[in-house]
Nucleic acid binder design. Structure first.
Lengths: 344, 344
DNA sequence: GATCGACTTGTGAGCGCGAACAATTACACT
DNA sequence: AGTGTAATTGTTCGCGCTCACAAGTCGATC
């Protein structure tokens, strides 16, 4: 590495090179690049021509150093292979790009406070201007709140309990609608396959379900606990199939509903003939389950987009409105739900 | 903005602040930060203490400016809400992090050459040191190859036709295994629901299927074209169900297989009683389809990890081995395939 | 006890860019 | 022509950091 050949070293062109070629000062080049006013059109053209000729590209590090802006937003993501998180990430990225930001991701394996903290720190060390956290676990909320002082942070898909601005689907309302739908169909009560403990979605959907049952004066049965996976839905389904009392089940997500359908099918319990099943999420596949799944649609992509808008607003210094944006979910009726069977 | 109050402005601490507090020069701080040798232990301790006290964080832009290294890798991703791409992205990110890199993503809406080019340019403008492209379309390969001169690029999940280093599942072998499995079960031939035109996976799986059929002397039936979605599988299924000749179908991915199963179910064609179905991917849900799906597993996460290793090697200047890493897929036998039905 | 070598620390410069300010030019109206 | 104002361009500085080099410190060796 020591000895430099004294020849023409083909190094990346810098602004000074462009300036020299165009016969102007580097500042004029900078002005053209940044669209500053008061640059004569023909000067601009000369500069642009020089830029093209050299294939000059501004050095983002240098720019970031002096402007103190990295043009980068961080996204902390969890379980990003699941449909929901992946879609949110996607929406976030699209929106960030059109807002002129880069997106740097840090995906987590676990959602304990330390991991979240580490991820956000990492992102901050990289110089991100703001962070969006796809962190639907209760344990993450505390960690998220702690660092909001340093860079703006928004949470996506988390419940509304967070102290940081949040964009989320109204899980309470969605769960209530699902439960009510089954009740209205004549079912005496609705069983519930919940998500894993510690998730805000789990809690909110549970609450929405329970509250609706209570308001309707229906008994609140024992909850089945799952972990979002089809496998866990299947396992819950094994027990549900064995219980002749059950006629309606609200699953906290579509994947678990899939497992449940599978178990019911194996047990010879027709859906919706014997048991009605409703899911949550409306993943693209659920229309093709056997039977097609009635579910509650969340528009994850929009969630991501809205979250990014919120973040950008915060960056722009818009009044820290402690905003909690709640996106209304939408029921999608398909064939897995039907009237309660005649009592035997 | 004009008037600065002459008071103590609470600005981010910089290296000089740490140096002053620790009573050393900024260079010594730098040395501690970068683990340079020849720093006396107690000096190091003083510096570390000062860093902690001020909660100092190095400015990455300044560092990047002088070292000419951004510690950032770019990932160009397409259809990143699908399970495969999302998993690859996830694997990539994990591996990047443990290799000490940040990950900046650019997800595409379309995979035409211009979009890919734009995305990579964008990433490069941001100063990424290398790029991994999750770009399984043939059209993208050209675009990718074009820019390999500027920053190292690897392709993930693409077929092996690319001119850039690639990590991919051996689709040919996987498709051949799937087809052979059905043939071995006694089916006279195997029909195929292919992915959308233009995808490398589509092509390779098609080739593997066709070749196996030809080698076995089996007729090569008309291909059904899908677009990876369950919907398209369903539509293919409608036509397949109407064709009494069909006894075995190889779907180019699990989602389409799901749609196909749905259509067959609706048409009263038992699986695998009347028709055997095999998928490709082994998404987590496929074990819970009705019936559970026999499929060919790709380990997407590993793909991402391997790709990142390759990229890091290139960055480290390891011999540009034009490497095409092929990961062997694995057949997962479940209940959607069985012996050919007795000819009527 | 002077010299050599290792260790340890400090000084200066400059990465590439944009901000502030200075300088120059063009144009309007007296 | 004379003054003022706006438009246009250039100069200098410094963002926060690492690198190259200089300089000091210490002990061991002859």
């Amino acid at each position: 590495m020591g000895s430099e050949i004294a020849g023409t070293e083909p190094r990346q062109p810098v602004m000074a090179d462009v300036a020299k070629l165009a016969g102007v000062s580097h500042q004029t080049v900078s002005r053209v690049l940044n669209g500053a006013p008061h640059v004569r059109p023909d000067t601009r053209d000369k500069v642009l021509a020089a830029i093209r000729e050299l294939d000059y590209r501004p050095n983002s590090a240098a720019r970031a150093l002096v402007t103190r802006r990295s043009q980068t937003l961080g996204v902390v993501s969890f379980a990003s292979t699941l449909y929901g998180p992946a879609s949110m990430l996607d929406g976030l990225e699209q929106a960030a790009r059109s807002a002129g930001y880069f997106v740097s991701v840090a995906s987590l394996r676990s959602l304990d406070a330390r991991s979240v903290q580490e991820a956000v720190d990492r992102l901050r060390d990289q110089g991100v201007e703001g962070v969006a956290v796809i962190a639907p676990q209760i344990s993450a909320v505390g960690a998220v709140a702690r660092l909001s002082s340093s860079v703006p942070v928004v949470a996506v898909g988390s419940g509304s309990r967070s102290r940081v601005p949040t964009v989320a689907v109204d899980n309470l309302t969605g769960a209530a609608a699902a439960t009510r739908h089954l009740l209205d169909l004549g079912h005496g009560t609705v069983h519930h396959v919940a998500g894993p403990a510690g998730w805000l979605e789990t809690q909110d959907r549970l609450d929405g379900w329970r509250r609706t049952l209570e308001e309707a004066g229906a008994p609140v049965p024992q909850v089945y606990n799952g972990d979002w996976s089809a496998r866990s839905g299947y396992e819950a389904g094994l027990r549900i199939a064995a219980d002749p009392e059950v006629t309606a089940v609200f699953c906290a997500n579509d994947h678990m509903a899939l497992g449940l359908l599978r178990a019911l099918h194996e047990a010879g319990r027709p859906v919706p003939g014997a048991i009605s099943v409703i899911g949550f999420d409306d993943i693209p596949e659920s229309a093709y389950f056997t039977p097609p799944l009635t579910t509650v649609r969340q528009n994850f992509g929009e969630l991501g987009r809205r979250a990014l808008e919120l973040l950008v607003e915060e960056l722009a210094g818009v009044a820290h409105a402690r905003s909690h944006v709640l996106v209304a979910p939408e029921m999608v009726l398909r064939r897995s739900t039907g009237p309660a069977p005649r009592p035997a």
